[in-house]
Design a protein around this nucleic acid. Structure first.
Lengths: 253, 253
DNA sequence: CGGTTAGTTGAAGAGGCTCAAAGCAAGTGG
DNA sequence: CCACTTGCTTTGAGCCTCTTCAACTAACCG
């Protein structure tokens, strides 16, 4: 489990790892009192980094923990009856994964690192126990799960109603917003997933993704260099998406 | 709010409405002790029936309550930037709706009755409070939300990867399973939604839905009479879906 | 290096959409 | 009780978007 808790736990001077963490404002501890953060901090295990391609958990593994991404990126996916992979989400730093495992006591998806990735493991039984003692923590969990539900429903709209251009534009703007939230550039970032994974996620063929991205570049909406993306014309991109989607959603977070 | 609580509340002889409700095994109270069910029962308001087309709540309304369907059916949908409706779910008796509103304090979708419908209103602040006192209730809420998340992800797979036949077959088998769970026939049921609404939900044109259903009937997979559906050949239907989807998911419930 | 994987580009084809029209059921008013 | 409206469903025909198949390039790695 490789935890490095060398500091006395309830010292009022020495802060917990959660308090030091640059993601704490986005992650679970939001709106918790200092002493509560310390209690949460105690149940969290910092795991050693995953290398690209390694599993955090596999579809069918028994569910024990939620995970918060500290650095890197993961994808979750499940294997369809035909043996093909279907990606259900990408996870960036500060984002929580594993929520879908609570119900069935096994993870219904696999989680794999797209690059070197570190996570905080949050044993769910401890979290649940702690949430009994800290109502605001429980509230926070409800909110996070609720948000996941409405985000997924936006994704359903995207998959059901949008064409290839709209899908790719939505995807890029969504990533842009997620980077922005944690203080990185909204206009310039690196895709940690392949074109194939983007297509899989968006319900498009690889070739279509490639063509759309190339066309966006020709029309000077974005600038592309391999996995490096720069969004040049935000207005046009948002017009493509239909303005009212991802951006609004991120705004009220 | 038109509640008809004529019985003394904590009598050990007179059971609560939740206990009498035929849906209690499927709804929230599952796994609660009798006295806890009574406490839950107290915060629940039975609302007067909604007529077809009436709103339970509207996109943007302030979020106060979850709702459990007692009878009838509802759809949830949101309005895209182009002003078109996008259906995000259908809700049958015993199913809970409103979960996506917890995060943002307003409902991100509208809920409209597809036929005469009655619901139980569960004020969320009360539920949350009660869940502090009853850990198993809190656990139950986590599970329900988690299940919603994994169901929605299955839906994303359906929308992203499946063709028209597979979508319609999945939809019908999913409904079949939901009817079965609450004791109705799995093979014979009535669609409370129009072809247009099915198409909207599945990301298909009305015409396509109509054609697929007609073809299923020709191939003797189902028998159709307007909104009445009878599934004749389950094996073939499940082959279409890919076997491993909805059915498995329902099985481990 | 040769081998492998990821990405791009072109051409052909299919699945589902759009448009248009007609059938059908339920309700409304004369 | 019938004519008319209204909304939902079905069916046909043509078109368009995206997929599939294939070839080619670039990058990466033992």
């Amino acid at each position: 489990m490789a935890i490095t808790h060398t500091q006395p736990r309830f010292s009022s001077k020495l802060t917990s790892q959660c308090q030091n963490c640059s993601l704490s404002a986005l992650c679970l501890p939001i709106a918790l009192a200092d002493e509560d953060i310390n209690r949460l901090d105690q149940i969290i295990e910092r795991k050693k980094p995953l290398k690209k391609g390694e599993f955090l958990f596999r579809q069918g593994d028994s569910f024990d923990s939620l995970y918060a991404v500290r650095s890197g990126t993961l994808k979750t996916y499940n294997i369809t009856s035909l043996g093909e992979e279907q990606i259900t989400g990408f996870y960036c730093p500060s984002e929580l994964l594993g929520l879908s495992g609570i119900d069935s006591s096994t993870y219904p998806v696999s989680a794999k690192a797209l690059e070197t990735t570190t996570v905080c493991e949050i044993p769910f039984s401890h979290l649940e126990e702690l949430s009994t003692q800290i109502p605001s923590l429980k509230h926070q969990i409800f909110k996070i799960m609720s948000r996941k539900i409405s985000d997924d429903q936006q994704m359903m709209v995207l998959l059901g109603k949008k064409n290839a251009d709209e899908k790719v534009a939505s995807f890029l703007l969504n990533l842009s917003n997620r980077f922005k939230r944690r203080g990185y550039s909204a206009s310039s970032f690196r895709l940690s997933m392949s074109r194939g994974e983007i297509g899989n996620y968006l319900g498009l063929a690889v070739e279509t993704v490639s063509r759309v991205i190339t066309r966006f570049q020709k029309n000077e909406l974005i600038h592309v260099d391999g996995k490096e993306i720069e969004i040049v014309n935000f207005e046009e991109m948002q017009k493509l998406v239909g303005v009212a989607n991802d951006c609004d959603k991120i705004a009220h977070f």
